[in-house]
Design a protein around this nucleic acid. Structure first.
Length: 689
DNA sequence: GCAAGGTC
């Protein structure tokens, strides 16, 4: 053997696949300091394939961030900057030890700007000694053996420096903008009120907050307009149906009343029947965003919780890599084999799998979105052994979705009956599923419901039972919920698949937003207002777009990193200077808003004794927390609260007893609902056990 | 303290 090749991979699972592909399935698996790596020989050389764990290095300020602006940052091992990143340390150690006598280096991280930076930092900070100049690059778009081997055969002779430069710039720009603006916000409150409030702004979080604030404004400014609707309840045999006036909304009350009195007391006559058949195509394979959206719709799981569950399922080898944006399933994953294995898991899966395997062809209905390193999420076919609760629900959703994408389209017939009631035109719409196709595979997660229509023909007279004139009001646009805002972020290219959930969580943690139906707090509004005045750039998703253009220019060699960074510093200096001049007034408003938001976040519900606000209070004497009335000492109503974990008031009252509830979040545990009523019938059940 | 990005 004449040399030693060190292959650096993005993560442990990628290292396993890359080693297997290059060694034709025969790598020697080894372990050092708890890190698994692989060895084999190839082309007369000794290969060592090691994993990173995503970014092993991060940007850190070289001196304390007491004042702004501040641009002095350096790359440090991530465990030195983040106490929760201890597990990264052994990876650096292992790579250092194995790389000592390496003669060649290959960057085999994901082929995107972050992956390029992961490998580059490892090469320059861990391997040293010209590793950067010597290193070659593997370029692949999925981690399949075939493509990995091809990538090795067509090895790029040098690192992808253009991509690396773009990535380094992205990190620094985000740090400059985010840290400095965050510091400016917090400093403003400190100047005005001599107290510290943790505030933040950033390229992704702030435009997201802006979108939510805009919706808040639309809702506040919304003026409802009254309208009238006319419905007639018809009975045909056992079937009871509701026909609507063809005009839908009447904006004029007298017109509505005139139409109502015309039809009142009359039966309906069928004047025309229109029906049309159409196909509803199967859904596309899940990427992380789609899974988060569906898990929220079907189970009410928050995007961040779904992400955790998917990660757990992935680590249990039950599903493929979940942090993907791909909606495509390449044939190499082996459709039939997975479906067969899933079929053995249970009777229902068995029945569905058999139906799919009987089809002439297995071809997934793929979506348009792609991912540089991973296919869409799919079940591996491994039998789940010990999964329960939400994990089981998400697993089932993923399996059924996987089945569905191979199933035929559903055939639906929609029918519209035109009716005449006392000279007024009415309509009755129905939907019938002629062939369920994929709907049967998606099962209870499919939303399409049939609307049954009576079997009638033109000229038939249907008996009317009830005539209804209803006054309604136009509704404001709906509030975003965690799933819909994440979809919006994706549509506007804000954040990445893995960061959208956590960034939304940051907005909650800062107290900028609250509630399942997301409302922007007074604090969130004031942050947006202050930034709108002094730094409109950070509010708009265009900053992300601008960043992308700059990154592209760097990748094309049209711009230099230093140039882009200097430009950002100049811009920020200008913005921050103006901001500082108004620190006191900005800080006063932010501080006041923070108090309002904090007070509101403690309100759990109404006091059942006096109607005041029931709030979370911490006892001065015992330091214990309890729910107390805002009218204390006039009203001394109180209830006990759990003492451990973070409490989050819930909008919905307890389904069993209609009392207010809080969500209890404890580190590493599943959040649970706590009903304030000590006598809640649900708790009685538990006591009995 | 404070971002956004990767990872488990």
């Amino acid at each position: 053997m004449t040399g030693k090749v060190l292959v650096i991979c993005e993560k442990p699972s990628a290292a396993a696949k890359i080693a297997a592909a290059l060694s034709a399935g025969r790598p020697n698996k080894r372990e050092k300091h708890g890190v698994t790596y692989y060895e084999f020989s190839l082309d007369g050389k000794r290969f060592v394939v090691v994993p990173a764990l995503g970014h092993l290095y991060t940007l850190k300020n070289t001196r304390p961030l007491h004042t702004y602006p501040m641009y002095d940052v350096e790359w440090v091992p991530i465990h030195e900057a983040d106490r929760n990143a201890k597990r990264a340390e052994p990876f650096i150690r292992v790579i250092r030890e194995l790389g000592k006598d390496a003669t060649e280096f290959i960057s085999a991280c994901d082929y995107d700007i972050e992956g390029s930076v992961v490998a580059y930092n490892v090469l320059r900070f861990v391997c040293g000694n010209g590793a950067v100049q010597k290193a070659k690059r593997m370029k692949f778009s999925t981690l399949t053996a075939q493509e990995l081997r091809k990538a090795y055969e067509n090895l790029m002779p040098r690192l992808d420096f253009e991509l690396i430069e773009a990535g380094l710039t992205r990190h620094e720009l985000d740090w400059y903008w985010g840290m400095n603006l965050s510091k400016a916000l917090s400093s403003a409150v400190e100047t005005a009120e001599q107290r510290f409030v943790k505030l933040s702004a950033g390229r992704v979080q702030t435009p997201t907050l802006k979108i939510l604030t805009e919706r808040e404004r639309e809702i506040e400014e919304f003026e409802p307009v009254p309208f009238w609707e006319i419905a007639v309840v018809l009975r045909i045999g056992k079937l009871k149906v509701k026909a609507q006036h063809e005009r839908g909304r009447f904006w004029d009350k007298t017109e509505a009343e005139r139409a109502y009195s015309s039809c009142h007391g009359h039966n309906a006559r069928v004047t025309k029947i229109e029906s049309r058949r159409y196909r509803r195509n199967p859904p596309t394979p899940f990427n992380l965003g789609d899974l988060q959206s569906e898990a929220y719709r079907c189970f009410g799981l928050s995007p961040i919780r779904t992400q955790q569950i998917a990660q757990d399922l992935y680590q249990a080898a039950l599903i493929s890599y979940p942090r993907t944006s791909s909606q495509k399933l390449p044939p190499v994953i082996g459709y039939a084999e997975i479906i067969e294995k899933l079929g053995k898991i249970g009777r229902e899966y068995g029945r569905l799998a058999a139906m799919l395997l009987e089809q002439e062809r297995l071809e997934p209905n793929q979506g348009k979105k792609e991912d540089p390193a991973h296919p869409a999420i799919f079940p591996t076919g491994e039998p789940p052994t010990d999964i329960r609760g939400a994990h089981l629900k998400v697993y089932d959703l993923i399996v059924r979705r996987f089945f569905s994408v191979f199933a035929p389209p559903a055939v639906v017939e929609s029918t519209k009956l035109h009716l005449e009631i006392g000279g007024e035109p009415f309509k009755l719409s129905g939907r019938k599923i002629l062939d369920p196709g994929w709907l049967e595979f998606y099962g209870k997660y499919a939303s399409s419901e049939e609307v049954q229509l009576p079997d009638v023909k033109v000229g038939d007279v249907l008996k009317a039972e009830e005539w209804v004139l209803e006054e309604k009001q136009t509704q404001p646009p709906p509030r975003y919920n965690p799933a819909s805002i994440i979809r919006e972020m994706e549509a506007k290219h804000l954040g990445t698949k893995g960061t959208r959930g956590p960034i939304l969580q940051t907005l909650y943690t800062r107290g900028y937003i609250a509630g399942e139906q997301i409302r922007v707090t007074e604090l969130g509004k004031q942050v947006v207002k202050a930034l709108a005045q002094y730094c409109p750039e950070i509010l708009s998703e265009e900053l992300t777009a601008k960043f992308e253009l700059e990154m592209e220019a760097i990748q094309l060699g049209k711009k230099k990193r230093e140039e882009v960074l200097e430009e950002a510093k100049r811009k920020l200096a200008e913005i921050l200077e103006k901001f500082r001049l108004h620190e006191a007034e900005i800080g006063k408003k932010l501080g006041e808003a923070q108090r309002v938001a904090r007070a509101r976040s403690r309100v759990i519900g109404k006091c059942p004794r006096c109607g005041g606000d029931l709030r979370i209070v911490v006892s001065k004497r015992s330091k214990k927390r309890f729910a107390g009335c805002s009218n204390y000492p006039q009203c001394d109503f109180s209830l006990p609260l759990p003492q451990n974990g973070l409490l989050q008031p819930l909008e919905q009252v307890c389904p069993a007893c209609q009392s207010p509830q809080v969500l209890v979040r404890r580190a590493g545990k599943r959040p649970y609902r706590f009903c304030l009523n000590p006598e809640c019938p649900e708790k009685e059940k538990w006591r009995g056990k």
